[in-house]
Design a binder for these strands. Structure first.
Length: 453
DNA sequence: TTTTGAGTTGTTCGA
DNA sequence: GTCGAACAACTCAAA
């Protein structure tokens, strides 16, 4: 009898899982394991931890209770487990993040020392990062040409779930109970729930995606981001079911953004922390007690700008925020409060159930104007105008900011200016957008001309 | 080789 | 009210 160890990481599903297919093919039985790595779980925040534990419970159930969970540093835990069960090979999907690559190299080294093979099959992407280069042989730095090359490159069809897998049991830790989330409303976790979400989106949501996705009140986005984060769905499985209609291809482009940012992070791992554009990144950001107070108002949804506050409260309330509102709130932190994007990015990563390092950090860099293919710095979102354009009747802001429930639509995005004044309990704007916009442009101009370094 | 046009998500100002 | 220009600078790919 030969045994293979399958190490699950962010591919918590049994269908279309190439590493699983390879593990099952190469041995008589398979030990399926997940390692609870404190280095990853620490910064994840309760929402993402809780969702992960839900995904693990669902995976365990679909494996008839055979998932082996161990806790600790994977570089120690995984080779130990492999030796313990007498595995000839360790199978996994390739991880392209900065931490994941270091971790997997460390595991590979010890596995080889122990006389077994580490086999990487597949990845969480339709096209693995690093696969697409421009004609000059360097990575793309602009999205549109990348997306053309990405479509030209193509991807394999999803594979079927192996009909029968001989799971082998091994001792493990119980799956921890999810942390107490005090009112945070998370989506159902696991592969079956993901499939249900995808089915529903394809049946009803994707048709109007082109238009409706921008309206946070309509809640017309796919809500598949947590599934892509943990691999309860693979992007291939989505792409295979998208037709050629404009709306469906718009959605495919959104998946491509995820792959583009993973590609950028793969080539520039330090961009998870540092601004890619050093000039813009070296602008003077505010610090100190006043800055802390502004940050806290932003984080808790008490800025006095309804769309910003609604977004930040949605983040705390369901561990998720509508994408347009992510841009608005991020722009507000960077351009109106003059705080470094890294600070906002960290808060998002702590609270997002879908928090993905590449998408999150580069989404922030895009807004801050420091990233690859970033928005020009002068493109500063006006939170009032954005609210009025994308949430005209105030459905979204009233859902998350109950203080505004009785403010008429005309004033709901500028309550302080309405005839009745500010509703009880809702703060006045903590900064004046027009002033802070000018201030941002002034700092930018000063940085560019070298007056401040 | 050089040139040219286009490039996710915006805002403001002045005609 | 609508519309175009200005707001920078650089990458990429086609001509």
């Amino acid at each position: 009898m030969t045994t293979a160890l399958l190490w699950f990481r962010r591919d918590l599903r049994l269908s279309d899982n190439p590493a699983l297919v390879e593990a099952a093919r190469s041995a008589d039985d398979v030990v399926g394991a997940f390692c609870l790595d404190p280095a990853l779980l620490g910064p994840a925040g309760d929402a993402r931890r809780s969702h992960l534990l839900g995904c693990l419970a669902a995976l365990d159930e679909s494996m008839d209770g055979n998932l082996v969970v161990r806790t600790g540093d994977p570089a120690v835990v995984i080779p130990e487990l492999a030796v313990e069960v007498g595995a000839a090979s360790v199978h996994l999907a390739e991880d392209f993040g900065p931490y994941g690559r270091r971790r997997d190299d460390a595991v590979a080294e010890r596995a080889v020392d122990a006389g077994m093979e580490l086999v990487r099959t597949g990845s969480p992407y339709a096209v693995p990062p690093g696969s697409i280069m421009n004609k000059a042989g360097s990575p793309y730095r602009v999205f549109t040409p990348f997306s053309r090359a990405w479509r030209d490159h193509g991807w394999p069809e999803p594979t079927r779930r192996p009909s029968k897998i001989a799971w082998r049991r091994a001792p493990g830790d119980p799956i921890p109970a999810p942390p107490d989330l005090a009112g945070v409303d998370l989506p159902p976790a696991g592969e079956a729930a993901a499939r249900t979400r995808l089915d529903r989106f394809l049946r009803t949501g994707v048709r109007d995606y082109d238009e409706a996705r921008d309206a946070p009140g309509a809640d017309a986005t796919s809500r598949l981001s947590p599934d892509l984060r943990w691999g309860t769905l693979h992007p291939r499985q989505i792409l295979a079911r998208l037709g050629r209609s404009g709306a469906e291809q718009t959605f495919a482009t959104e998946l491509c953004w995820r792959e583009f940012y993973a590609d950028v992070l793969f080539h520039r791992p330090e961009s998870a922390r540092e601004s890619m554009d050093e000039a813009v990144g070296s602008m003077p950001w505010d610090r100190g007690a006043d800055a802390d107070e502004l940050f806290e108002a932003w984080a808790q949804g008490r800025t006095g700008y309804p769309i910003v506050d609604a977004g930040m409260r949605q983040l705390l309330g369901e561990g998720w925020m509508h994408n347009r509102v992510r841009m608005i709130t991020a722009s507000f932190l960077v351009k109106d409060l003059h705080l470094a994007w890294q600070r906002g990015a960290r808060w998002f990563m702590q609270h997002l159930v879908d928090g993905d390092l590449a998408s999150n950090q580069h989404g922030w860099q895009w807004t801050a104007g420091t990233g690859t293919d970033a928005a020009p710095f002068f493109r500063i979102f006006n939170p009032t105008t954005q609210g009025e354009r994308f949430d005209p009747d105030g459905t979204y802001v009233r859902r998350w900011v109950p203080e505004l429930s009785d403010v008429p639509a005309k004033w709901v995005h500028r309550p302080a200016e309405g005839p009745d004044g500010l509703p009880a309990g809702y703060p006045a704007p903590i900064v004046d957008h027009a002033e802070e916009r000018s201030e941002s442009l002034r700092r930018y101009e000063a940085t560019r001309s070298g007056m401040i370094s």
